[in-house]
Computed example of a mutant assay.
Amino acid sequence: MSFKKDEMLIMPAVDIKNGKCVQLVQGQPGSEMIAIENPENVAKHWEDLGAENLHIIDLDGTIDGKTSLDVIKKILKEVSVPIQLGGGIRSIDYAKRLLDLDIERLIIGTMGIEHPETITKLSDEYGSERIMISLDSKDNRVVIKGWQEKIDKSPAELSNEFKEHGAGSILFTNVDVEGLLGGFYTEPVIELKNSVDLPIVYSGGITSISDVKQLNESGVEGIVIGSALYKDKIDLKEALKYQNR
C-alpha cells in the first residue's frame, strides 16, 4: 500500500465503537448517524466493491481507552486488502502489538504529538512507511485526545517536525467539516501539501464526487471517505475512477 505520485488511494472508513461500525458527527459520542453490526462484514463489503485499501479507526480506544482488538482481528481475518489503523494507541507496546498483527500502516495521534520519540522508535524498528502521524485540525490548530485539547500550532507548522522524527506519511483530518456532509475546505489541504514533502491522506467532509475530483487535483496521496459512502452520497465504484491522476 505504498503511495505513488500518480495515484490517490481511496479508502472507505470503518469506525468501530461498541462492537459496531459507526459514523459519528464531528467525533462526538452519542451522535451516531449509522450503527451497523459486524464491522468485519462491512469491511468485506467495501473490499468486494473494489476498495484496495481500508481505513479502520478504533473509536473505543480513542474515546474510552478500551481497545477493540477482537474486532480488529476479525477484520484482518476477513479482508485481504491492506489496512491502515488508528485509535487508542497510547503505548509503544500496543503499537508494536498491532504492527505485528500485519497492519499495513499504523496511525499515531496523541502519543506521537506528546512524545515524538515514539514515532522515531517505531519508524526505526518497522520502517517509516508503516508509521503515519495523525494531524487533526480545528480552527487551523492541531487537536489531540479525541479532539478535546488544542495545541497552539497548525498542521503545517507541525508537519516537518514529524518528518524529522521518522513519520512516513500524514493523516490530515479537518474536524471543522468532519461528519457534516457539507463538503471540505480546499485551502488547509493545499497549505499542508505545500509545507511538507510527505504523502498526505485527507479526511473530513468529503461529500460528493466533485470533492473526490478536487482532492485528486490537489495532489494528496490518499483520501478517507466515511459518512458519504454510508449515506449513499458517493458511489464507491464511481469514486474509484479517481484513484489515478
Rank of each mutant, 00 (worst) to 15 (best):
Ser2Asp: 13
Leu9Asp: 12
Ala13His: 03
Asp15Thr: 10
Ile16Gln: 09
Asn18Cys: 08
Gly19Cys: 12
Gly19Gln: 14
Cys21Ala: 14
Leu24Cys: 12
Val25Asn: 07
Gln26Ile: 15
Gln28Asp: 11
Gln28Lys: 15
Gly30Tyr: 11
Glu32Thr: 11
Glu32Pro: 07
Met33Gly: 01
Ile34Leu: 08
Glu37Asp: 14
Asn38Phe: 15
Asn38Ile: 08
Asn41Thr: 11
Ala43Arg: 00
Ala43Pro: 05
Trp46Ala: 00
Asp48Tyr: 06
Ala51Phe: 00
Glu52Asn: 12
Asn53Met: 07
Asn53Asp: 02
His55Asp: 03
Leu59Cys: 04
Gly61Gln: 01
Gly61Arg: 04
Ile63Leu: 12
Lys66Ala: 11
Ser68Phe: 06
Ser68Leu: 12
Val71Asp: 05
Ile75Arg: 01
Glu78Phe: 03
Val79Gly: 10
Val81Cys: 13
Val81Pro: 05
Ile89Cys: 09
Arg90Met: 02
Arg90Gly: 04
Tyr94Arg: 10
Lys96Asn: 06
Arg97Cys: 03
Arg97Ile: 05
Leu98Trp: 01
Asp102Glu: 15
Ile103Cys: 06
Arg105Trp: 05
Arg105His: 09
Leu106His: 00
Ile107Arg: 04
Gly109Trp: 02
Met111Cys: 01
Ile113His: 03
Glu114Lys: 14
His115Tyr: 09
Leu122Phe: 05
Asp124Phe: 06
Asp124Leu: 11
Tyr126Cys: 01
Ser128Asp: 08
Arg130Pro: 05
Ile133Asn: 00
Ile133Arg: 01
Leu135Asn: 02
Asn140Trp: 08
Arg141Lys: 15
Gly146Gln: 09
Ile151Met: 14
Ile151Lys: 12
Leu158Phe: 01
Ser159Ala: 15
His165Trp: 15
Gly168Cys: 03
Thr173Ala: 07
Thr173Ile: 09
Thr173Arg: 06
Asn174Trp: 02
Leu181Arg: 10
Gly182Cys: 05
Tyr185Val: 08
Thr186Ile: 11
Asn194Gln: 15
Asn194Ile: 04
Asp197Ala: 12
Ile200Ala: 05
Gly204Phe: 03
Ser208Val: 04
Ser208Asp: 09
Ser210Gly: 08
Leu215Asn: 03
Leu215Gly: 01
Leu215Pro: 02
Ser218Val: 07
Glu221Gln: 12
Glu221Met: 03
Glu221Pro: 00
Ala228Tyr: 07
Asp232Ser: 14
Asp232Leu: 11
Lys233Tyr: 13
Leu236Trp: 00
Glu238Ile: 14
Gln243Cys: 13
Gln243Gly: 11
Asn244His: 15
Asn244Pro: 02
